[in-house]
Simulated assay, not measured.
Amino acid sequence: MKYFKEAKNIWKSYVPSSGQSDTVEGELLRAVEKLRYEAHNNGNGNWDEGFEMFCDYLLETLASDKAFSVEVQGELVDNINRLLNYDHPYLEDDLYDRIADRIVEWSIYYKGPVKRVKNPNQYR
């Protein structure tokens, strides 16, 4: 992971011990780490709409954003679509780390933190 320290700082500063983050980068990082945990620790056995919502949030926020080149946007789409294949959990760290690095890059681009409205439908 290229931006481990920066991701750790976002986590410590903007991801609450439970519930959603008040910032976009905090919620993005929370999403990717929830997806990582579910795959690694549960084999996606608890996969439901909440995890799909995390993937949708990552796609909507990152995959077509002007902060990234078309090539990087395509990589993000491929990576997130791989996570959506929940019947075959992705168990390596590289993909999750790549997405986390892009979250840090997004935060740097937008000179975060960027405030967000919590999604009342996200229960994970």
Rank of each mutant, 00 (worst) to 15 (best):
Q20I: 04
I99R: 00
K34Y: 11
N46I: 01
L95G: 00
E60S: 14
R98V: 11
L59Y: 07
I99Y: 02
N85W: 06
G45L: 06
G43H: 07
A67E: 01
R124T: 13
D48L: 10
F4K: 15
H40F: 10
I10K: 07
A7I: 07
G26Q: 03
A31N: 09
V15L: 04
A67G: 03
N41A: 15
D56S: 14
E33I: 07
Y37E: 11
E75I: 06
E105A: 13
F68K: 03
D78C: 10
E52W: 04
N44G: 09
Q73C: 14
G45K: 11
H88Q: 15
K2W: 05
F51K: 03
D93G: 09
N41E: 15
R82S: 13
L58W: 05
E27R: 08
V70K: 15
E92L: 09
Q73V: 12
K111R: 10
M1H: 12
Y57I: 05
R102F: 03
V77F: 05
Y123C: 13
Y109M: 05
P113H: 00
K2Q: 14
K118I: 02
Y57P: 00
N79K: 14
P120R: 08
Y37H: 09
D22P: 04
L95M: 10
N85E: 15
Y123W: 14
F51H: 11
H40M: 15
A39V: 06
A31Q: 04
N81Y: 12
E25I: 01
D93V: 04
H88W: 08
Y123V: 13
F4V: 13
E25F: 00
L28I: 02
W106M: 03
V70F: 13
D48R: 09
V77Y: 06
V114L: 10
E60W: 10
E71S: 12
V104I: 04
L95F: 00
N85Q: 14
A63I: 05
N9E: 15
L28V: 04
E49P: 01
N44W: 00
I103G: 00
D97F: 07
R124V: 12
R30V: 02
W11V: 06
C55M: 03
L58P: 00
K115S: 09
K2H: 11
E52L: 12
K12M: 13
I80R: 01
S17N: 14
N9S: 13
E71R: 05
